[in-house]
Nucleic acid binder design. Structure first.
Ligand SMILES: [Zn+2]
Ligand SMILES: [Zn+2]
Lengths: 224, 224
DNA sequence: CTAGTCTAGACATAG
DNA sequence: CTATGTCTAGACTAG
C-alpha cells in the first residue's frame, strides 16, 4: 500500500477501528489515484496535514469525461431516464464525494450534503454543478440544517455542455433543444443531451438521419 | 420469481446442485428481462422446450445502445484504450453470452467459445461481430478445438458504426478516419469511433472546437 | 429526493 | 496477443 495513503489515513477523524476503517482506506486510495493523474496530490497532502483552508481547490471529475462533449442516447424504455447524480462509489457503497471526504477528515458525524456549505473561494463547490467537484474538506463549512438561507454562491447557469454542443451536431436545432432542456429540467440542470431516434430496435444500418427528440418532445423540423 | 424462469431452469443440463444453480438462475433472469423488451421470449421458450435448431435467432445487444451512433471518447491516458469485448456479466462473473447459454442448456462441460461454431442459418452469430448477438443455443454446434478450418461464415466487414458516422459529425474527415480506423484495427474491427481532442485536461468551457485525432494521428485541418 | 442493486465498460494483469 | 478478474459510473428501481 502507498505510503501517502497511510499518511492521509493518519489524519482520519473518528474511531480507529472496525470495518469503516477499511472502507475509508479504499476511499483514500480512490482519491489518490485520481489526484495523481491530475497532479493535485501535493495540494491534498498540504490541505490535510496543515488543516488549511487557504489551499487550492482539489477536484475530481463529476462524471465520465465523454459526457463533456454531449452524449447521444438511445432510450431503451419509453422515455429517457437520467441518473448522473454525482455520487461516488467506493467498494460497494455510494455517496457524494465531498460528503465522503469531509466525513473522513473533518466531521465523522456529518449527516448529509445539506450540512455542508462551500467557502467563497471554492470555485468547484459541489453546489456549483460544474464538470469538476472540489473535494478539499477545508473548502466546506458545516452548517445547521433547517433554515433555507440565500446562498452566497451564484449558480453557474451555463455549463460546458450547454455552451458547447457537439461540433456540427444538431446545429440549428440546438437553440430549440436547449430551451426544451432548460424548460424540462428546470433548475435541476443536467449536463446531457438526449437525442432519441424514433427507430430504436435492432437495425444494422440506415442512411437517413434519425428524428431528434429531446425529453419527449418531437422536433417538428423532421422533414428537413 | 417468474414462472418462465423456473420453466427454463428445468431444461438446464448438468448437475442440479450447488452455487452454480443460483448463478444460472440469475443468468436466465437476465436473459428473460432482455428478451421481454424485444418480444423474443416466446422464441426462446420454443427453442429450449423443443430443443429445436429450426427456431429463429434470439438476440441480445452486444454493447450499450449508444455506441451504435458512434461515441466520442476523451482519452484519459496517452492513447485510447478499448474493451468492448462482448462479455456479459451476471452476478459477479463475466463470460461470453453464447457460451454461457450453450453451457446452460446444452453442454455443461463446454470449455470456451473456440468449441462453438454457428449454424449457417444463424444471422447474428457471435463471430459475425454484429450489433446483436444470437444466444439461441441451438444455433451453435460444438466442434473440436484444434484445426484452423475455413469458416463457413463470411465476416461482415461493414458494421453499422463504420457505415453511419454520427450525423453531421466529422463529415468530410470521415473517409480519412475510416481508413485510419480500418488500418489500425486491422481485422479486429471494433465498432467505435475514437476522437481524441489534443486538449484533454480540466477545462470548464472553451469555444473553439477541439482538434480531432483518431488513433494517434492528428488531423492536419485544425486551422479551420 | 434518498438509497440501494446490477452490470458494461475501463482497467489491470497474468499467460 | 488473448483470457480473466476487479472496480465503479451510470442505469435502473423502489420507498
Ligand atoms: Zn474548492
Ligand atoms: Zn442465430
Amino acid at each position: 500500500m502507498l505510503p501517502i495513503v497511510k499518511q492521509l489515513m493518519g489524519w482520519k477523524k473518528g474511531e480507529q477501528a472496525s470495518q469503516e476503517e477499511k472502507w475509508y482506506e479504499k476511499a483514500i486510495k480512490n482519491l489518490v489515484k485520481k489526484l495523481k493523474k491530475t497532479g493535485q496530490l501535493e495540494e491534498l497532502e498540504k490541505a490535510i496535514t496543515n488543516q488549511s483552508g487557504t489551499t487550492k481547490c482539489i477536484t475530481i471529475p463529476r462524471y465520465l469525461s465523454f459526457w463533456k462533449l454531449g452524449r447521444v442516447f438511445i432510450s431503451q424504455g419509453h422515455y429517457p431516464v437520467l441518473s448522473l447524480d454525482g455520487r461516488l462509489q467506493v467498494s460497494h457503497r455510494k455517496g457524494l464525494p465531498h460528503v465522503i471526504y469531509c466525513r473522513l477528515w473533518r466531521w465523522p458525524d456529518l449527516h448529509s450534503h445539506h450540512e455542508l456549505r462551500a467557502v467563497n473561494v471554492c470555485e468547484f463547490a459541489f453546489q456549483l454543478k460544474r464538470d469538476e467537484v472540489c473535494v478539499n474538506p477545508y473548502h466546506y463549512q458545516r452548517v445547521s440544517v433547517s433554515p433555507p438561507e440565500t446562498h452566497p454562491h451564484v449558480e453557474i447557469v451555463g455549463n460546458s455542455i450547454l455552451e458547447t454542443p457537439p461540433p456540427g451536431y444538431i446545429s440549428e436545432d440546438w437553440e430549440i433543444n436547449k430551451h426544451q432542456i432548460n424548460h424540462s429540467m428546470a433548475l435541476n440542470l443536467q449536463p446531457v443531451t438526449y437525442c432519441e431516434p424514433l427507430n430504436q430496435h435492432v437495425e444494422t444500418s440506415h442512411t437517413s438521419q434519425p428524428t431528434l427528440t429531446v425529453d419527449g418532445f418531437t422536433d417538428p423540423s423532421d422533414s428537413e
